[in-house]
Design a protein around this nucleic acid. Structure first.
Lengths: 413, 413
DNA sequence: CATATTTTTTCGGGGCTCGAAAAAAAGCCT
DNA sequence: AGGCTTTTTTTCGAGCCCCGAAAAAATATG
């Protein structure tokens, strides 16, 4: 807002522009970069020469597209996979995974493991993360790679600056400073992010045509989470990761929610809520926490098979989601929706009542035009989101250091 | 996202930075500008010399602050009031006002008038606006001023680019192209904005300490509107002005709303809803539209005087607003709230149930810390918002033309 | 093998910001 | 009163950066 733009910022920004153009396109010619950035050919030539000299980009001479057009052929520029590496940590209920990703976004090594998150002390929880990162970065496939950044995604709320996990359903501990503790352990910048926000980030890279400037990712699992991209930017709260769609109020004084309050969307549409409803239990009954993916899959099969409380439970979930989305759309206007997670595998059971309900709301005008897509497995998306977030951070920091100094360390060797 | 930053944009941006620094501060020295923008003294000196030469800024030699400090005294720089003028049009239910405002933000002339908006044809509605603008800009106080921009605020939804009024409670006509038609009439850029959004813009200028980066303005009048500022930017929907807080769903299948749907917040908290509820009418009864400000004032007096349906009606309104805010806060985190309009004059009747209710929601954690302020009269705020929006537009356009060309027309004479 | 075509690099020019030094405009002190 | 100190503002040269035009490079075509 108040900070002016210095003369040397200019190069910085334009370098960032070039890197991000290459990251988006994969392989591009200088001419194309000039076209998409609006900068002149001479500028692009100078900047890309620098970036190649610094080992950030590479000319891909092999594998000519062979368009066999007249004139000097374009030379494709791509990201140098060895320019850097990042670590993506995903911490969910009873589950931890770590992936090491190269500068071009390819996963080099990965580990996934179950663990009882709720039984661990705060130190143990952080320690498990650190241990797995150490184990994976020590593998020989990673040897020689410079890990420049770590991003950890966790269920629950995080602070807006990515330092702490404020609250999470995976543990009773609150305000865990994952950022600080991982930074101390590894000496590289670390941010902590909400899992659904990372899903949203991932979708943009996964399918940029569908998920461009405005869309919604809703995670249907034990709880209900949301990641929101508006006007091209990830939406976060003013202090926290925000976007607690699952805790918008569906019915005042309604069903008991895992959060201890009543009537939240999640208290109707979370796995535990569907399960509770299907089993005929009272809405006042405390949510249970150990419903497996297989349990939910069987429940869906049963609901598809015959009419009954199971089917009705899904229908109620659809209603809650429909009213919630209706209210959300009243605020932001309708946008494409991605349904992610095990609940998305039962979206056929949810969709009819969801669409019917959303049509009753102001935000759901043109409800037929609202498009839903489903992604049953959230983990790959969360990992991808973490990786891309880490990489784009680097993209705008490599540039900052770059230029004359070229003090990126590893390249000197 | 994709557009690079050219070399000549640099001056443009820094000129804009200087102008906006002056607009915020009113009267500032070059040294202060250098401090707030982070640019060097030499740059500020050069830019401010240009802007003064172009008649955009002026040195205020008179009225020395007289701090009597040692050293060369600062010379205060301010906006040149005669550099330009803008027009603020406010179109509400049965009401129209036009103000002409100078470059420094002072109102030069103003007219307010009642008219039966609902009985007018589309052409008449636009015609009334044009006529009043012509009348006011023709007054001798405005003589010689160059009107560079017009902003019209209207109740209801507008499109995100500020061209059309999409829907409004003040008329049955939809999709009225106020932007295009006013531009044709006056030959200057025109944008159409939502009234509550302009209230939010105004609050930032009215009380920048309280309303800085994140806050909510809620208009409590016949209907319920909202203007939202998040992370320093006015929040709008993806396609429309968005922020239809009044049409978030409070109770599924609940009270009949003016919009024809059921259970909206507005159907409990709008004037017509409070009136309906206080008069003991069914929630299914069609909303009436002719409740005067005086009627509502009397209703509030009666509610304060004795327990009964009047008081209960306000309490229900507070509940609806509380659940609505709770859901909103779940998405964006709590933020300061401004209650605006005639309903704000009865906020004492609403507040207890509102606070109690919001405390029941996930978004309402720390509900005691949420601060409310009230502004009973919305019109001055809407006018101020339009004016400031128009002026800040000019600030970033004057600069674009400025520089060597100096083709700002009027100055040449 | 010369020509046409397209991409990329080179080169000079014009702008912009910055830091340092100079100039300007006071108050302070002897 | 006059020189000194302090603070603000302007001036000036240096260093970058981007752009446009022209040159160079690399390939298909005839």
């Amino acid at each position: 807002m108040s900070v002016g733009i210095r003369h040397d910022d200019l190069r910085k920004r334009n370098r960032a522009m070039v890197i991000s153009a290459v990251r988006r396109a994969g392989q591009v010619s200088r001419t194309d970069i000039a076209a998409t950035t609006g900068l002149s050919h001479s500028t692009i030539s100078a900047i890309s020469a620098d970036l190649i000299a610094e080992g950030i980009l590479t000319e891909a001479k092999g594998a000519e597209a062979g368009a066999a057009r007249r004139g000097r052929p374009q030379v494709a520029i791509g990201l140098n996979p060895e320019a850097a590496a990042v670590v993506a940590i995903v911490l969910l209920f009873n589950f931890l995974s770590v992936a090491v990703v190269d500068f071009s976004g390819r996963v080099i090594v990965e580990e996934r493991r179950k663990l009882s998150t709720f039984d661990l002390s705060e130190d143990e929880l952080v320690g498990e993360c650190i241990a797995m990162v150490r184990r994976q970065t020590a593998r020989r496939e990673v040897a020689g790679r410079d890990v420049l950044r770590i991003v950890l995604a966790v269920q629950g709320t995080t602070d807006a600056v990515g330092r702490e996990m404020l609250w999470s359903p995976i543990t009773a501990h609150e305000g865990v400073d994952f950022g600080g503790r991982l930074e101390k352990a590894f000496g590289v910048p670390v941010t902590v992010e909400n899992d659904c926000n990372m899903i949203a980030v991932a979708l943009r890279w996964h399918d940029p045509d569908r998920y461009r400037d405005d869309f919604i990712a809703i995670l249907l699992s034990h709880g209900i989470g949301m990641g929101l991209v508006l006007k091209g930017d990830l939406f976060t709260g003013t202090h926290s990761s925000g976007g607690e769609f699952g805790h918008m109020v569906h019915r005042p004084d309604g069903a008991l929610c895992r959060c201890g309050r009543r009537g939240c969307v999640e208290a109707y549409a979370g796995n535990y809520a569907i399960w509770r409803s299907a089993s005929g239990a009272s809405e006042d009954e405390a949510p249970i926490s150990d419903i497996s993916v297989d349990d939910m899959a069987r429940l869906a099969v049963s609901a598809r098979d015959h009419d009954g409380p199971e089917r009705e439970a899904y229908q109620k979930a659809g209603e809650a989601l429909g009213y919630g989305l209706g209210s959300l759309f009243a605020l932001i206007d309708p946008a494409p929706v991605a349904m992610v997670g095990i609940g998305a595998a039962a979206f056929d059971l949810i969709e009819p009542s969801l669409r019917a309900t959303i049509g009753l709301t102001a935000g759901g005008q043109h409800s037929k035009a609202i498009s839903f897509a489903t992604y049953a497995d959230e983990l790959p998306l969360i990992t991808l989101g973490c990786a891309m977030r880490a990489l784009t951070f680097i993209d705008t920091e490599v540039l900052a250091v770059g230029g004359q100094t070229a003090a990126r360390g590893k390249d000197v060797a």
